[in-house]
Computed example of a mutant assay.
Amino acid sequence: MAQNQSAAQALAGTAQGAVLRPGRAADPVPLEAIKAPSDNDPQAPLAAPPAASSTDSDGGTGENAPDSNGGPEQASDESAEEYEHSESLQAESRQRKLRLMLRQCDRVLLMDFELLAMNDWPDNFSVAAARRSRDLWIFSALVAAVVFLSGLTGFVPAWIAGGGFGAFVIILLLGVPVVRRVYTSAPSYLDLLLKRQRLMRDARKHAEHLEGKEGLIWQCARMADFNPALKSTRFGSLLRLSEQKSLPGALSRREHIRLYLIYLLEAEKAYSKVQAAFFEGNQEAIDQGWQTVAAEPEERT
């Protein structure tokens, strides 16, 4: 019985390989046992899984590591490039808009403040005083003429009529501008009226030069974001007339000229802010390296 069990164990050991038994030498391994066991042998040892590569054991530093790590980096680079491109397009659009404002409203720099302000405009008090002097001169001349004519009809003595004729001639001479300047430096009523007409004519001519063919102030209305005063409702009629290219002909009173001057002054302030914003954006484009955005304003025509 014991011999049979020993024989069975010897056969099993032979199939599994050399077994070292205590007290005796190892049994030789047959050549058939060295051969690879078949797949159908239930006692065949399971195949060991392939050893993990050193790149996998090192924490993914092999060929697939750059793909896994390079993907997000590449995506972030592309998003950064897209963001920079969008920023460049926005900056270019803004610079183009500012350049258009500067070109359309650059004639505001040609404004002559003294000509439109009309500081030499005769005030109402001076005109009223000159009107009273004129009325007194006319009344005196009429009285002298009546005395002279009364002497011709015999109502008054001849010497009074002669004195009336002499006074009439002297009064008429005092009304002559050359003689009048000898005894007084105050302008006459006619001189004040002519001066007002001349100032108004020069102001309207200058406004016509500023407006040009396209109309100036309604184009300057685009700069209202830089100066909210341009949005005032009191300029509505001026903007409408300027858009219709009929503004210079509608400036018939001094109040109209003054309102036009106030708008030009506000437009000049807005122009300065637009110019500063344009050059600031141009400098920023130069710093960022946006060559298409960094451009100088177009030359005036």
Rank of each mutant, 00 (worst) to 15 (best):
V178L: 12
A18F: 00
A158W: 11
G70Y: 07
A295W: 05
L174A: 14
R134I: 05
I171T: 15
S188A: 15
A167M: 13
F148S: 11
Y263E: 10
T301Y: 05
S232V: 03
L247K: 03
L193A: 14
Y183S: 09
A48M: 06
M1H: 04
E299R: 05
I160R: 05
W137M: 11
P297I: 09
A141V: 07
V127C: 09
M200P: 12
M200R: 14
F139H: 03
Q90M: 10
F168T: 08
E299N: 04
K205N: 14
L174F: 15
D77V: 05
L239K: 07
A7G: 00
L152M: 13
C220Y: 11
T233Y: 02
I138K: 01
V29F: 01
G289Q: 00
A267P: 09
M200Y: 12
H85W: 11
D67H: 08
A129Y: 03
R107F: 08
E32A: 13
G17F: 02
N119G: 05
V169P: 00
V182C: 06
A294T: 03
A12V: 14
S133Y: 07
K97N: 05
N282L: 10
D135I: 15
M118C: 13
L261M: 04
H206R: 04
L261K: 01
A2E: 09
Q43Y: 10
A285C: 02
S88M: 15
F139A: 12
D123M: 06
E266D: 14
K273G: 02
D287S: 00
A294C: 00
K35A: 03
P187W: 11
T292A: 06
C105N: 07
T233N: 07
F148L: 01
S88Q: 13
L98C: 08
D123E: 11
V293D: 00
S57T: 15
A161Q: 08
K35G: 00
R107P: 02
F226A: 07
G154S: 05
L230Q: 09
A10T: 02
D123L: 06
S76T: 10
V274M: 05
A250C: 08
L152P: 01
E32D: 10
A33E: 02
L142D: 07
G60H: 04
E73D: 14
G62Q: 02
S57N: 07
V19Q: 05
D27A: 12
A221Y: 15
E92L: 15
A207Q: 06
A294M: 01
M223Y: 10
S68L: 13
P42V: 14
G164C: 06
P22N: 01
A12T: 05
Q104E: 14
S126L: 10
N124I: 14
